[in-house]
Amino acid sequence: MTKMTVLEALNAAMAHELEHDPDVVLLGEDIGIAGGIFRTTQGLQNRFGKDRVIDTPLDEKGIAAHAVGMALYGMKPVVEIQFSGFIHDCIEQVMFCGAKYRWVLGGEYSVPMTIRAPSFGGIMGGIWHSHSPESYFAHGSGIKIIAPNTPQDAYSMLIAAIRDPDPVLVLEPVPLYRTLRGEVDVDLPVPEIGKAEIKRPGADVTALVYGPLTHKTVEVAESLSKEKNIDVEVIDLKSLIPFDIDTIISSVEKTGKLVIIHEASQTMGFGAEIAASVQSKAFGYLEAPIDRVCAPDVPHSYRVGDEFYIPNKDRIRAGIIKTMEAVY
């Protein structure tokens, strides 16, 4: 066991895969000498060379597109998009080429590429540095989407993504990169993509969350337990495509109440899909309307976005209390 920040865990995961699999290459803007603008890949080009850790032109679509071609040939490219606010230029290449090639080519080829997308708000980054792009990628087929938010998950789930035979989008928790440090056991088995984790067991209400907000939600749950005697079960979704329906349904059958929390804007956010699935599978267990605590349908403001756009602890708390009070 070693203590690492999220950033160090991601770096260690890439180093491990570069060392053990000659087909793994990293591509991105400024990832070589500097190690990327966040320093996630720091030291890797010196260690593995310029043919394995490749500085690319400033062309997000081009990076993703060339990675698709490399993956078709049999390599395992790991693409860094500098900020997920810049990822939308890649949507056609990732969603309508990379994620579709296995199917359109009759199952004869695969595209084992990983797209690392530094995501989420919390660094006073304004609209294009605070983005949650998951819904654009979830509304398609052929790509998996994961959102690790601890050093251990960052390490293990990035390795799982790199080894996966299909494209995987990794939503990396930018605000936790350097602020969260924790134990990483590099010998743990590589996890299956698609499993959620119960972060805090509880009996009264289920709070479903992913990304950096998971930590805030656990804090809210602890305070609600002490102050209002509300026992919140917090589930960290961890994987959006596919998502762990069994863990969610078991929890809702127990609590009868569900609050979904995410920092992407509300309309067509991923919470809508979860809510639709839960009502169709556990309608008889629901004691209150499913609530969503999300960002509003406005862009993320530089000055106040981190406080009022991303759900803060007040809003998460209010959503849970409202759901508790709404029992039929």
Binding site: P22, D23, V25, D51, G62, A65, H66, A67, V68, G69, M70, A71, L72, Y73, G74, M75, E92, Q93, F96, C97, V104, L105
Partner: peptide, 23 residues
């Protein structure tokens, strides 16, 4: 087989050739 978005596969060809060179 082609992508129907014409031209979208140009970088795939370059990427595949690049991978062939690296491997």
């Amino acid at each position: 087989s082609s992508t129907t978005q014409v031209g979208a596969s140009l970088p795939h060809a370059v990427g595949a050739a690049w991978a062939a060179k690296l491997k």
